[in-house]
Amino acid sequence: MALLRVRELKRHYDVRLPGGLMGRRAKLKAVDGISFDVEKGKTLGLVGESGCGKSTTAKLVLGLIPANAGSITFDGKPVTASHDAAWRAMRRRMQMIYQDPLGALDRRLPIADQIGEPLVIHEPGLAASYRRERVAELMAAVGLRRDQAGSYPHELSGGQRQRVIIARALALSPDFLVCDEPVSALDVSIQAQVLNLLEDLRAKNGFASLFISHDLKVVRQMSNRVAVMYLGLIVEEGPPEAIFHDPMHPYTRALVSAIPTPARRGRRERIVLQGDPPNPVDKPAGCPFHPRCPSAMDICRTTPPKLIGHGPRRVACHLHDDAPETRLIAAE
């Protein structure tokens, strides 16, 4: 049984587009029916370009915003967005790490108080001396010095602030951690420190996580499975080596080939997609990717492809509609 189970999750927003006196009503389909599992102690990486619904998914999973349809189950119990006692008890076990550490910290509170705050809220009976000890342990675990306990966020560097955020998220020993672009604001050398720290903590504490990033290299480093999102849908999902070394969906192929790395220099075999990612308000009919897809067929313009299993992975593309068994037979 998966720790987190998401089925046909949808989140639509009502928006008004320019046109007419009051504007024209439209639906922005931020997340449009996604399903995935996160196993205990494993990491699911979520990649995609801006506006594809990664962050909305994170908020939905934690019950921070209500879903329009679909279900989220955490450890067998449904996650709702009604912030009652049951939800709070569940949120103890599900924590979040944010992209912008300065924005997620209170500027007027010493960092030790912020790291200890979840304990104050969720374990009010805890003795202050024990809490201080626990905060000191957490700070040591994330590589902050003891004498920094009284520092304020502005006195720390970006990497240190992110360590504070991680320590705070781990204060209640959560089973599940949502990391929304946790290293995007950090420099390369600091990014490596934080990624290694997260990996070590995961090995030690055994939490599962949803790891969101636009950087495929970082996601590959951190994930056991990867889901690629495009316009509110998962287009391909599977083990990172399969997804990044042998992508099946044309969008994943373009995304993977677009990553510049020192090892790939000089080999200009990038698939450059035409056009911009379309607006989630005017989602094209059929496959959402077909207007930019180099191998679009007639069926792609009319029928949305289903996410179909191909060995260890799932792909939503009409190119791979036939199940792998039948393809093998055809090839023979």
Partner: peptide, 24 residues
């Protein structure tokens, strides 16, 4: 050398990143 070892890669085997100690 430190910068390059700290960079995760998309090709090749997955390795533990080598971070540069300390800060600028």
């Amino acid at each position: 050398r430190g910068l390059m070892a700290a960079l995760p890669d998309i090709d090749g085997p997955k390795r533990r990143l080598k971070s540069i100690a300390g800060t600028v």
